[in-house]
Each structure stands twice: as structure tokens, then as C-alpha cells.
């Protein structure tokens, strides 16, 4: 019995808790991608770099706060800085929308032109972020490191295995949950949110109904930039901030959005968790887990790891391909392709 409990705790510690946190981060990123796809109708390749930009702004404000002695006690100072980062990300998104995307929108250019334009924006954002904060790793988390420490957990329960929950993981899950609720309330209940859905569903009819497309686009960028900054900051707190890593997050985020059904917010959330848990479960070494569950004295050869952690991109990709082949509209029906 105790072995089974140990095995469960072990799995929670290394698979379930990290998977939940990572899944929430991906989901927030994918929500931004999916909203832009639903309203502006293109895959935004600059989304990873928008996350990096917003997070960078959060880090800079965090450092300023730290240097003048403002802190949030047990939770990271970055949470106080978050609104400022969101404002910065919204500002730059709207700047790029006015100067770049609006032109093509008025011209009704095909989606691929928007995608190429977003590659240009990606380069520029990438350059800006590296110019300001540099290409290296930045650690900006402070406050308490753990909600539950492994040692405390062991003492509390008397088990061999400890369950550690990092503050950043706890905050990620709580913040992501609140943000998602707020977003769904907005989309389902508010007049502007409904207008966004209507515009995404049927642009011509939305125009006939007197919905102002500029306003819908404005709100979409505001929400996407806010989501990107929140996702980026949570990821940075949980792991660390490095511009190139954020650029690379683009792939799992796209995978999440497509797997869930692109254009469908619920799908983006489901997709984020599917991708995160697949990555974590496939790259986890199950040796110790099996020792607990197997007969006394037995141990498997090797680490029992399905794939090395370096192949985590491959996992998102394989799931992506499978979904595209079996159910091209995603788990939840997204935009019909």
C-alpha cells in the first residue's frame, strides 16, 4: 500500500504538477494564438516574441521594484510588475497593428501575406528584446521558493517520496485559472466579447449587424498581448527567461492551438494540457516508479524513458501530425480547414 502511495506521490511530483503548470502556460499562449487566428485569420509567428517582449518588460519593472525595495512578500515581485508588462505588450502590439497589419487588412490580403508580415514583426521584436535585455538567461523570481517542500511533505506523511510544489507552479495554476475564467466570461457574456465571436464566425454578417471591425481587432490585440505577457511571465518564473527559448515555444503553442481546434478557445486550453502532458509523460524516466509498483527486489533495466528529453519538440509535432491526419479540425471543432 505504502509503495503505491509512494509511486503516486513520485508521479505527482515529476509528472502531474509540472505538467499542469506547463500545460497552463502553453494554454495561455495558445489562447492568444487562437484568438488572433479567429479574428484576424492568420497564424501569428511573432507570438513567441510577443511573449518575450511582455516578459522582458515585466522583468525590467521587477528589477526596478526590487531596487527600490518594493516587494510582494511571499509571492514574486513580478506579479506586481505584470500589469506594466501587459501595458507594454499591448502598446507594441497596437503599434505593429497600425503600422503593419492594418494595411493588409484594408487590402484584404490573403492570410499568407499576414504570416510573412508576422515573420517581419518577429524579427523586429526579437531584435528589440535582445537589444534591450540581451540574449542570455535572466532569473527574476523572488519571494518564497516553495509552497510545499519535499522534506516537509515526507515528514508530514511519513512516505519515502516527497512532493514539492514550487510557488511558481502554484501561482501559474491559480493565475491561469482566473485568467481563463475571466476570458470566458468576457467572450460569452459581454457585448464586446460576443461581437468578437460574431466577427470571427461570420465577418460579413457582423458588418451588416453594425459591429465595428476596428474595435474587434483592437480588443483582440489587447487580449492576445495580455495573455502572451501572462503566459511568458509565468513560464519565466517557473523556468527562466531567455529570448530564444520563447521563440522556440512557438512550436508547442501552435501545436496546442491546432490540436485543440484552431480558433476555438476551449480547444486551446485542452490542447495546451494535451501537449504538455504528452511531453512530460513521454520524456519521464519511469524506473523508480516501476520499482515501487513491481515485486519486491525487482528493478527494470535502464531508465525506462520512452524518449530523451531533447525530443520533447518531437512529441508535440507527432501529436500535431496525428491530429491533422485523423481529425483536421482538432479535438474541439475549430475553423473548418
Amino acid at each position: 500500500m505504502e509503495d503505491i502511495l509512494n509511486a503516486i506521490v513520485l508521479l505527482s511530483n515529476f509528472v502531474i504538477v509540472p505538467g499542469l503548470a506547463y500545460g497552463a502556460q502553453l494554454a495561455l499562449g495558445a489562447l492568444g494564438v487562437t484568438l488572433i487566428y479567429a479574428v484576424l485569420r492568420f497564424s501569428n509567428f511573432a507570438h513567441g516574441d510577443l511573449m518575450a517582449f511582455g516578459t522582458m518588460a515585466v522583468i525590467l519593472v521587477t528589477w526596478t521594484f526590487q531596487s527600490v525595495g518594493i516587494s510582494a512578500g511571499p509571492v514574486p515581485t513580478a506579479l506586481l510588475a505584470l500589469p506594466f508588462g501587459i501595458l507594454a505588450a499591448i502598446g507594441i502590439s497596437l503599434l505593429f497593428d497600425r503600422s503593419v497589419y492594418k494595411f493588409y487588412r484594408t487590402k484584404k490580403s490573403p492570410p499568407v501575406v499576414f504570416v510573412i508580415a508576422s515573420v517581419g514583426v518577429m524579427f523586429m521584436l526579437n531584435g528589440i528584446v535582445r537589444f534591450i535585455i540581451g540574449p542570455g538567461d535572466q532569473n527574476f523570481s523572488d519571494g518564497g521558493r516553495f509552497l510545499i517542500k519535499a522534506r516537509e511533505f515526507k515528514e508530514m506523511t511519513g512516505l519515502n517520496e516527497g512532493l514539492a510544489i514550487k510557488t511558481s507552479q502554484g501561482i501559474t495554476i491559480i493565475v491561469a485559472f482566473l485568467v481563463m475564467i475571466a476570458l470566458f466570461w468576457f467572450l460569452q457574456k459581454s457585448r464586446t466579447g460576443k461581437a468578437m465571436r460574431a466577427y470571427s464566425d461570420n465577418e460579413d454578417l457582423a458588418l451588416l449587424s453594425g459591429i465595428n471591425p476596428d474595435r474587434v481587432v483592437l480588443y483582440t490585440w489587447i487580449i492576445a498581448a495580455a495573455l502572451a505577457t501572462i503566459a511568458g511571465t509565468l513560464y519565466g518564473l517557473d523556468k527562466s527567461f531567455k529570448p530564444f527559448t520563447y521563440f522556440q515555444l512557438l512550436l508547442p503553442i501552435f501545436a496546442a492551438a491546432i490540436v485543440g481546434g484552431i480558433g476555438n478557445p476551449l480547444g486551446a486550453i485542452a490542447g495546451g494540457f494535451v501537449i504538455a502532458f504528452s511531453e512530460v509523460t513521454v520524456t519521464y524516466a519511469y524506473k523508480k516508479f516501476l520499482i515501487y509498483l513491481g515485486p519486491e527486489g525487482w528493478a527494470p533495466d535502464g531508465l525506462v524513458q520512452l524518449l530523451s528529453t531533447d525530443y520533447k519538440f518531437a512529441v508535440s509535432f507527432v501529436i500535431l501530425v496525428l491530429v491533422l491526419l485523423i481529425r483536421p479540425t482538432g479535438i474541439f471543432k475549430g475553423k473548418v480547414i
Binding site: 499568407v112 522556440q248 501545436a255 508535440s316 500535431l320
Partner: peptide, 21 residues
């Protein structure tokens, strides 16, 4: 063989993925 039947955005994402792999 896998990705060419898809629309352009998806081909882009599929190729982005394969190159990382």
C-alpha cells in the same frame, strides 16, 4: 506526403516542427 494536403498555415507549422526535430 503528410503535410502537403493541408492549408498553407498548417504546412508552415508542420515544416517548422520537422526542422526542429
Amino acid at each position: 506526403k503528410i503535410a502537403l494536403g493541408l492549408r498553407s498555415d498548417y504546412l508552415a507549422i508542420a515544416t517548422l516542427g520537422i526542422s526542429e526535430i
